[in-house]
Design a binder for these strands. Structure first.
Lengths: 228, 228
DNA sequence: GAAGAGTGTCACATAACTGTCGCGGCCTTC
DNA sequence: GAAGGCCGCGACAGTTATGTGACACTCTTC
């Protein structure tokens, strides 16, 4: 099976060049012209590698990166970020968000292809596991399932992302604003109290005979997952 | 010596908020209301960190950033840029100009404080740790937890901040006024005796079989945490 | 296009926390 | 050893923060 590479890039000059070169390297290639399209296509068929422009219409590359890492079908999806100019802090931010590599435009095609090969060859030691267990709760991002003490639990998308985020940082307290920023996305305007409601729903879903509330309320600070 | 943070921000609502929170985190803080003032103040005393609004009267934030990097006394002066929400290209330019980090307005205060800590820690390692232990008491500001001899202790928000402040300066005596200024904030008017009550509550919460009182009363001077 | 699921807000009840008082004890200072 | 300042602490009434059911909408799904 050929590796499937998704290119998210709005400048057709660049994407055409990539398409050409990647096909020549014998990859399956698809192109998304904006962030929205990219997200849809990722959802449709998970790529083996994502070439992601930093600035994309509709949904920015960094936002896509974040979402893929946070909630994607495969949070370990390798990502190479493309950005306009090389700047150390750009690089830091990109890598911070979870990109595996970083290439500045204009780039040398052969070098980029080398990096693509390198990333695909590499087996990334799971910074983000496919499954996490905290206490008696288990979350499986690949199967998109949650269970507590073995019992399956159904969560809505938002509750899932919320729990997912908590599970990545057990014990840590997040303010409503932080949660809105990361779980909802920094580009949405939602009341802070809405977080309360979703935490409530998450609690309700996780509620279980004899089990204690896994989510800790820290008054005037926010919420945290009980670390155990 | 406390880290010195200069806030360059023309909206007083924002700068006041920052002032309040930064002081609470025990930094030396100064505010510049426009770009010119900011440059002068930087010249006068080089800050350890610059919180810089993107758009400033007289001299723009980006210009300041550039000048500091090009000609400043300390070209490595850490800079966190504040920008209005959603100006992606601004971010790029900001980072391009050499800002170390950027934060979009409106921002989560706790997150900003976390970034401030992060940036300052790079400069001065050992500053504002996430966890502090003094004697048999431990405080974890990330998880927002307190324990004594391993036993969890619940504190209300004010008691938590109070203890947090004490833990940062074990042994040091603080007057009621100092505590009001830093723990409560210089902008609220509260009776000095109120401090007594909260210290009392903190003591009560920390009280433990066989354990001695970790807080020392210094008659007609204030309170201090026993250093050990 | 109807049913169902999922969302964001509100309003209201409740729980948690606050700031002040006031009384009584302790310590200092004459 | 008496007066007075200083402090500990229980009580309390006022605030503020949080939990939750209800509701109107929006999207999917069939």
């Amino acid at each position: 099976m050929k590796p499937y590479v998704l290119v998210a890039e709005d400048e057709s000059a660049v994407s055409e060049l990539l398409l050409y070169n990647l096909k020549r390297e014998d990859y399956d290639v698809a192109i998304a012209a904006d962030g929205e399209e990219a997200l849809m296509m990722i959802d449709e068929r998970t790529p083996d590698l994502l070439l992601l422009d930093w600035m994309l219409p509709k949904v920015s590359g960094i936002e896509i990166c974040r979402r893929v890492r946070a909630t994607g079908v495969n949070p370990n999806l390798p990502i190479i970020m493309l950005t306009a100019r090389g700047e150390e802090s750009d690089r830091i931010r990109g890598l911070d968000t979870g990109a595996d590599d970083y290439v500045t435009k204009p780039f040398s095609t052969t070098e980029l292809m080398a990096r693509v090969r390198a990333v695909l060859r590499r087996i990334r030691p799971g910074l983000k596991e496919d499954r996490i267990t905290v206490g008696d709760i288990e979350i499986d991002r690949v199967a998109h399932r949650v269970s507590r003490n073995g019992a399956d639990i159904h969560l809505g998308p938002t509750e899932f992302r919320l729990l997912d985020y908590f599970m990545q940082h057990p014990g840590r307290v997040f303010s409503r604003e932080q949660l809105l920023d990361t779980v909802w996305g920094s580009d949405v305007y939602v009341e802070a109290r809405t977080v309360d409601v979703h935490v409530g729903r998450l609690r309700k879903a996780l509620r279980q005979e004899g089990g204690e509330d896994p989510i800790r309320t820290v008054r005037s600070a926010g919420y945290a997952l009980r670390a155990d």
